[in-house]
Design a protein around this nucleic acid. Structure first.
Lengths: 108, 108
DNA sequence: TATACTTGCAACCGTTCGGTTTCATAGGCT
DNA sequence: AGCCTATGAAACCGAACGGTTGCAAGTATA
C-alpha cells in the first residue's frame, strides 16, 4: 500500500476534498454533500488523506470534524523547489536574451 | 484513462525519470539503465509523461531523446499557490502572536 | 543486402484503485 | 430502553496500473 502525498493528490476527488477543507473544517457528511459519490466513498478518501497526514480528525460528539494539515502541503512545495530553480534560471536567461536583442535593435 | 499531471507524478519511478531528465535530456535506453525495471516499463512511463506534456521527444537518427518540459511543472506550482497563501498567512499570524507575546513580556 | 541496435506496441498477468452495498459501532434524542 | 444519526470497516466488483514477454518497424553499419 503505497501511500505518499503524491499518490494522495493524484485523485481529483481528493483534491476537491482538500480544497473544501482548506476553506473550512468539515464532517464527512458535510463533505459528501458536495460530491456525486456516496458518503462511504468520501470516507475512504478521507482515510487515505488521514493516513498520509494531509488531514487530521477531531471527534466532536458523534461527529468527526476533518481539518486540512496545511503544513503537509509544504512537502509538495519542497519537492517542486528544485524545478522552480530551473524555470527561474531559464527565465533569467530569457531576460538576458531580450536584453541582448534590445541592444542589437538599438544599434540599427 | 485519467491522465493529468497529478496522476503522472504520483508514481515514484516517473518522478525519478523527471528528476533525471531535469539534469539532462536522455534516450529511453539511457534512462532505463538507472532503474531495476525493464526498458519497456520505462518506455510506458515515458508514454504517460508524454501524453500529459511533461516530456517532449526529439528523433535523432534511430534514437529518441526525451526532454523535460519544465513549463508544465508550473501547473503544479499554480495549483499549490492557493495553499501557499494559506500557510504564509498562518505564518504571518504566528508572527503577530509572537509580537504580542514580546510586548506582553516587555510590560512585566 | 544482411545484421545489429533502438524503440514502440500489443497481449497478458497480478495488484491496486475507486466505487457500491451491507453491516457494526457509538453517540444523541425521545 | 428504544430509536435515529454519524461514522468506519468489510466484502465485493469492474477498471486501471505497473510490470513482463514477444514482436514489429525503422535506422545505422558491415
Amino acid at each position: 500500500m503505497r501511500r505518499d502525498i503524491f499518490q494522495a493528490i493524484a485523485d481529483p476527488t481528493r483534491r476537491a476534498i482538500i480544497a473544501l477543507l482548506a476553506i473550512q473544517a468539515m464532517t464527512p457528511n458535510a463533505l459528501a454533500e458536495h460530491f456525486d459519490t456516496s458518503r462511504q466513498a468520501v470516507s475512504k478518501h478521507l482515510k487515505i488523506l488521514t493516513e498520509c497526514d494531509l488531514v487530521s480528525q477531531e471527534q466532536n460528539g458523534r461527529e468527526i470534524v476533518y481539518s486540512l494539515e496545511i503544513d503537509k502541503m509544504k512537502e509538495i512545495d519542497k519537492w517542486l523547489e528544485q524545478y522552480r530553480k530551473i524555470w527561474e534560471t531559464r527565465f533569467e536567461q530569457l531576460g538576458e536574451v531580450l536584453e541582448v536583442m534590445k541592444k542589437e535593435k538599438a544599434k540599427t
